[in-house]
Amino acid sequence: MRNRTGNNPKRRIVKDALPDMAARELLLAHVRYVGSGHHKIYPANYGLGRTNPRPTSSVCDALRPLPLAEATELLRQGVLRAMFSTYVQDGFPKYIWSVSADGTVYEAKTHPNTPGQYHGYPLEKEDRMCDEVKAAWEARC
């Protein structure tokens, strides 16, 4: 599988004037992790009829199946720590980042056609966002 083309320079974690916890909880009430067959080898419990990973897409379950509950919790923790982008589509950040217990950095992304519904994938270590996400994650614990 080829590495996905990452390092989008428009990706930025919100830094100044972090939303207060009430705003984060309101956002959390409206976001949902849905997954995508383009980033899965194993459909696990996502309700996906089939998977079809793109050659240029990261696969979130390449090392192990990632259950929906775990992916949902990663998204939840990303929102609670304000680990999201400032770019907003219909009131939703385009990106939400999180770090798993084993140190894997995940990026969740929404699409303009389905705002608030996110699919995610691990970032390669070479992606400049990995170090930035890890540093912000630790600072916001």
Results as ranks from 00 to 15, higher is better:
M1A: 13
R2K: 15
G6F: 12
G6Y: 14
G6W: 10
G6R: 15
N7Y: 13
N8P: 09
N8K: 14
I13D: 08
K15S: 14
D16H: 07
D16E: 13
L18T: 06
P19H: 04
D20Q: 05
A22R: 05
A23Q: 13
L26H: 08
L26P: 02
L26G: 10
L28D: 03
V31N: 04
R32W: 01
R32N: 05
Y33L: 05
V34W: 01
G35Q: 06
G35P: 11
G35M: 03
G37Q: 05
G37S: 03
G37H: 06
H38P: 03
H38N: 15
K40Y: 03
Y42G: 05
P43M: 01
L48K: 06
R50L: 10
N52T: 01
R54G: 15
P55Q: 14
P55R: 15
T56L: 13
S57V: 00
S57P: 04
S58D: 08
V59R: 04
C60H: 13
C60P: 02
L63G: 15
P65W: 00
L66E: 07
P67K: 09
P67I: 02
L68W: 08
A69K: 11
A71M: 13
A71H: 06
E73G: 07
E73Y: 07
E73I: 02
L75W: 07
L75P: 08
Q77G: 05
G78H: 01
L80W: 02
L80H: 03
R81H: 10
F84H: 09
Y87E: 15
V88M: 12
Q89Y: 12
D90L: 12
D90A: 15
G91N: 00
G91C: 04
P93E: 06
P93L: 07
K94C: 06
K94V: 14
Y95D: 15
I96S: 09
A101H: 13
A101N: 06
A101Y: 12
G103L: 00
Y106Q: 07
A108Q: 14
A108G: 05
T110W: 01
T110F: 09
T110G: 10
N113W: 07
T114F: 09
T114S: 11
Y118L: 07
H119K: 12
Y121F: 14
Y121K: 10
L123K: 14
L123P: 10
K125T: 09
K125Q: 07
E126D: 15
D127S: 02
R128L: 04
D131F: 06
D131V: 02
V133R: 08
V133K: 07
A136V: 08
W137I: 10
E138R: 12
R140T: 07
R140W: 08
C141Y: 04
C141A: 13
